[in-house]
């Protein structure tokens, strides 16, 4: 079935159509979450939470536009909320609650990919969000500011600092 038709039905509360959209976009949303969290289990939980949040906000989905970017923007905000909430915990609680041992290495991943994931996971959450939205979602500065609900100047500064940090860390590794 055509995606626009699915989005139309889902936006009117059709559960089955929403399920079909989840199947179509789960890989993109999961990868967004994995790049931001650096942990597979966390990425899976976050992706599920993002879809549930999307479902609650489904009436704001514009069926005339592709739903993929809409899902992934929600996923970035869900990841950011989770990462920042964890940062706000006192250190001991944070260590207890943390399930994030950095990018996993059990499965075979190219060394270059593993390096990039390690560098990404070392960035503050806001910087990860800026990198995700600019480099993977390919949003403009203005769209990034709108997605994150923050001033344009802050978002640009986060992006530039994030790149600088990555340049240092990817070069060293």
């Amino acid at each position: 079935m055509e995606e626009r038709n699915l989005a139309q039905r889902a936006s009117q509360g059709d559960r089955e159509a929403f399920g079909e959209l989840v199947r179509l976009h789960q890989a993109g949303v999961y990868n967004t979450a994995y790049r931001m969290t650096g942990n597979r289990q966390e990425a899976e939980d976050t992706a599920q939470e993002a879809f549930l949040r999307a479902c609650r906000a489904i009436s704001s989905l514009d069926p005339s536009r592709p739903p993929g970017p809409w899902f992934r923007k929600i996923a970035v905000n869900v990841c950011l909320n989770r990462l920042e909430k964890r940062q706000a915990l006192p250190l001991e609680e944070m260590l207890a609650a943390s399930t994030d041992p950095g990018p996993e290495s059990q499965t075979i991943e190219r060394e270059s990919s593993r390096q990039v994931r390690t560098a990404l996971a070392s960035l503050p959450p806001r910087y990860r969000a800026a990198i995700e939205l600019r480099h993977y979602q390919e949003l403009s500065y203005a769209e990034m500011a709108e997605t994150l609900g923050r001033p344009l100047s802050d978002v640009k500064s986060d992006l530039f600092r994030a790149r600088k940090m990555l340049a240092e860390r990817i070069r060293i590794e």
């Binding site: 990868n31 597979r40 549930l52 270059s112």
Partner: peptide, 28 residues
């Protein structure tokens, strides 16, 4: 900066561990 851009662009996509739709729908 170009190096950072190309390193980010070269990141492999991670295969989905399993279909997430049933778990999502069960919670709706």
């Amino acid at each position: 900066l170009h190096l950072v851009s190309s390193a980010l662009a070269g990141l492999d996509n991670e295969p989905l561990p399993h279909n997430l739709a049933p778990a999502v729908l069960a919670k709706i």
